[in-house]
Structures are given as structure tokens and as C-alpha cells.
């Protein structure tokens, strides 16, 4: 069983600048932030290392940080430019009983994150969901298509904070 600080030191030593920082000021959960293009090798190391053995991906969740500049549009809604979208990875080791939260942030305009589906099988659908909801593009994902929304939904990504409902979808009125 290892604490997040120990794992952070280990990772920092091995991956150098690919590991950005250890966020432990906010309550409840400590987070290690890493670079989005190297998340898959870090996760693979975490899974295969005998001491760490993070064999289970609990949850992969995309979050809109909405930390860019906001400008009001004429109809009263907001549009966000700049800033980042983040992905949180909750992983755990089922036999060593420790948990870890990883975070990657990618720029909002081009949110590209490396896919980890070949490390954890269940990341496949989680990543599709994050793509579907937030438009985060997972590179090297085998089938990055919409999963919960209709395949032909072309009005953006609903969980982004500046998402606006379309007036009509295939002739049906959307805001009811």
C-alpha cells in the first residue's frame, strides 16, 4: 500500500517532465497531473509494476474546467475560448489495496489525449463517453464514435459548460 506522495515521487523519477505536478491542496482527493500525450505509458507502468500493480481502472471521467475567457453572446449565453478540458483517471490495485487519481488537461481547442484502451479494456467505452459528452479526442482509440448521443448529433458536446441546445434535431423541436 502506497500513498499518493510516494507514487508521485516514483513517477517523477521515472518519467521526469512527463509528470507535471502533485495537487494536494484541495480536500478529499490528491491528484497527480501528467501530460496527456504520455498518459498511456504512465498507466501501463503503473499497471505492470509489481510494487504498484494498479490492475483496475475504476472510472475515467472527462471534466470541462471552463477556465478560459468567457464572452457573452447576443442571446445571453456564454461562449468559452481557451482554457482546458480535463480527464480524471481513478485507478486502484485490487490486491495491494491502494488508489490513485491521475489527471490530464488538454487545451479546449484541440483536446487530444492518448487512449489507454489497450491497457484497460473498460477504458474503451469510458473514452467514447468522454468524447461523446465533451469532445475529448482520444488518439489511437479503435472506434471513437458517439455512444450515448445519436450518431448524427452535430450540435456539439453536451457536457461542455457553453453547450447550447439546437432548435431542431431532424425536424423535431428540441427544447420542450
Amino acid at each position: 500500500m502506497k500513498s499518493t506522495q510516494e507514487i508521485y515521487n516514483l513517477l517523477k523519477e521515472k518519467f521526469q517532465e512527463k509528470v507535471i505536478q502533485h495537487l494536494n491542496t484541495l480536500p478529499k482527493e490528491e491528484v497527480i497531473e501528467v501530460r496527456p500525450e504520455s498518459i498511456n505509458e504512465i498507466v501501463e507502468f503503473l499497471r505492470d509494476d509489481k510494487e504498484l500493480h494498479f490492475d483496475n481502472l475504476i472510472l475515467l471521467s472527462g471534466v470541462d474546467d471552463a477556465n478560459g475567457s468567457k464572452n457573452k453572446l447576443e442571446d445571453g449565453t456564454e461562449e468559452i475560448t481557451g482554457g482546458t478540458l480535463s480527464v480524471y483517471y481513478h485507478i486502484e490495485s485490487m490486491d495491494l489495496r491502494h488508489k490513485l487519481v491521475l489527471k490530464v488537461s488538454a487545451p479546449r481547442e484541440n483536446p487530444e489525449v492518448e487512449s489507454i484502451y489497450d491497457v484497460y479494456g473498460c477504458a474503451n467505452w469510458h473514452e467514447r463517453e468522454a468524447f461523446d459528452m465533451l469532445g475529448i479526442i482520444f488518439k489511437n482509440h479503435p472506434d471513437l464514435t458517439r455512444i450515448l448521443m445519436p450518431y448524427d448529433w452535430e450540435f456539439g458536446y453536451p457536457l461542455r459548460k457553453d453547450y447550447r441546445n439546437p432548435e431542431f434535431y431532424q425536424g423535431m423541436k428540441v427544447p420542450y
Binding site: L26, P27, K28, E29, V31, I58, L59, Y88, H90, V101
Partner: peptide, 20 residues
């Protein structure tokens, strides 16, 4: 709640139900 995040999970009849 104050600013922060939590992942809590319970054993649902179908498996691990977690809230982030």
C-alpha cells in the same frame, strides 16, 4: 461543500456504483 472532489463507491446489486 467546499471546493474539492470525491470518489465514493458502494456495492450495488449489479456491481460497483461510484459517484465522482
Amino acid at each position: 461543500p467546499p471546493e474539492g472532489q470525491i470518489y465514493a463507491r458502494v456495492e450495488n446489486p449489479r456491481g460497483e456504483l461510484g459517484y465522482f
